[in-house]
C-alpha cells in the first residue's frame, strides 16, 4: 500500500472537525489541567502546536486502520502469516507504524475465541486502533473479564459455545493485542474494502464477532 493511498484515506473522514468545548467546567481537576497546559506552554516546555498535533494525530487513527489489516489477512494468506509472525512489520506494509509497543495479532478460530483486556490500566493498540472505548477503561470490564469472561461477552451480545475455548489476554507488559476475528460466512467474493466494513472495533478487541454481510 502506497503512502499516497494512506494519506488519501485520511482525507475522507470528518476527523479534522474541530472539537466542541464542553458545556461547563465542573471539577477542580479540569481547572488544574487547563492551568498545567498554560504554564507548560508559557515556559516553553511544550508548544501549543505540539499539543494540537498530538490531538490531531490521535484523531487521525481510527479502527478503520485495523479493519484494513484484518481484511487483508482474510484475503491474503501470506500476509496473514506475516501478521501472526511479526505484526509490527506486517502493519507497516499498509503504512501503519507502531511507535511504542510490540503489536501481537491473535486469531479467532472455530475452536478458540480470544478477548483482550488491561486489568492494571488501559493498554491498547492505540497506534493502530486509536484511543480505547470508554468501557475498555472501566473498572467493571477490567475487573470481571478475567473472572467471568463468558458472562462479560454475553453483555456485549456475544455468546460463545461451551466447546469453544475462551482465552483472555491481560496486557500487562509492552505487548499490544489485535484480535483477528473470524471471517463471517457468506463473504466469498467480497473485496478487501467490503470486508473491512464488516470489521468493527469491538471485534478487534474480541468482545464481538465481525458483522455479517448485508444480503
Amino acid at each position: 500500500m502506497s503512502e499516497e493511498h494512506h494519506l488519501h484515506d485520511h482525507e475522507h473522514g470528518s476527523v479534522h472537525a474541530p472539537p466542541q468545548p464542553d458545556d461547563k467546567v465542573h471539577s477542580y481537576y479540569q481547572i488544574l489541567g487547563i492551568a498545567l497546559k498554560e504554564l507548560l506552554i508559557e515556559k516553553g516546555v511544550v508548544s501549543a502546536d505540539d499539543v494540537r498535533r498530538q490531538i490531531e494525530r490521535r484523531d487521525s487513527i481510527t479502527p478503520a486502520n485495523g479493519a484494513r489489516v484484518v481484511a487483508k489477512a482474510w484475503t491474503d494468506p501470506a500476509f496473514r502469516k506475516r501478521l501472526l509472525d511479526d505484526a509490527n512489520g506486517a502493519v507497516s506494509e499498509l503504512g501503519f507504524e507502531m511507535t511504542t509497543a510490540k503489536l501481537v495479532a491473535i486469531e479467532n478460530t472455530a475452536g478458540e475465541h480470544n478477548v483482550v483486556v488491561c486489568t492494571l490500566c488501559s493498554c491498547y493498540p492505540r497506534d493502530l486502533l486509536g484511543l480505547p472505548p470508554s468501557w475498555y477503561k472501566s473498572r467493571a470490564y477490567r475487573a470481571r473479564v478475567v473472572r467471568e469472561p463468558r458472562a462479560v461477552l454475553a453483555e456485549f451480545g456475544t455468546h460463545v459455545p461451551e466447546h469453544v475455548v475462551v482465552r483472555v489476554h491481560d496486557s500487562t507488559a509492552d505487548m499490544r493485542f489485535l484480535v483477528v476475528p473470524e471471517r463471517p460466512e457468506g463473504t466469498q467474493g467480497l473485496g478487501e474494502a467490503e470486508l473491512a466494513a464488516l470489521v468493527t472495533r469491538d471485534s478487534m478487541i474480541g468482545v464481538a464477532r465481525a458483522s455479517a454481510p448485508n444480503r
Partner: peptide, 29 residues
Amino acid sequence: GVYKVRFRAIDLWSDYAGPAIDAIEADLY
C-alpha cells in the same frame, strides 16, 4: 525477559463458572 504465560481459569478461580478449557494469559517479567 518477558514471557507470555497461560493460566487455566479453573486454576485461578476455584468456582469458575465456565468450561475447564478456558484460559487467562498475561505477559510477565
